[in-house]
Amino acid sequence: MTPTQSFGLPPARRFVGLLALLLAAGYGVDAWQTLSVGRWHKPGAAIFPIAVAILLAISAVSVLLEKHGGADDPMPATFSLPEGADLRRLLKVLAAFAIYFVAMPLIGNMIASALFLLASMWLLSDDPKRSVARLAIYAIVIALSFEVFFVRLLKVQLPGGVFKQWLF
């Protein structure tokens, strides 16, 4: 079994409800202050956002006031999140994914993809004897295949980066 840590679902949902209530307030005030309300016969751009802000506030309050734990409650009492090595692995994959976006315009999609593939395959493989060389070959083959299929064949525009002139 994957090691996990349990948290109470009702407080977590209430936290989301509170965030949504704050968002509704900020969004509604911004719409009121920066957009024109207009008149009934000529409604302005603020009307709909204000209506949405009110609806968002109502839905946020309905989350805050939810009753939990009854016999007919369709929701579980807790939810689980990974912990320890699994949590670290999830966060590392997320970080690698974010670095991939930053690197993409700089070094180009193909190289950034190959590096991300290698890093994430390494992080996700449970095999203690995993070979970097083998994973690197997989990463290069997949990145190259994507480049040929999307950029060359389907003419999809992807960032070339600083190495564009030396590749292909």
Binding site: F97, Y100, S113, L117, S120, M121, L124, I142, A143, V156
Partner: peptide, 11 residues
């Protein structure tokens, strides 16, 4: 396949 699908989703 998880990294492959992640790259595909970005492209």
């Amino acid at each position: 396949f998880i990294p492959l699908l992640l790259v595909l989703s970005v492209i």
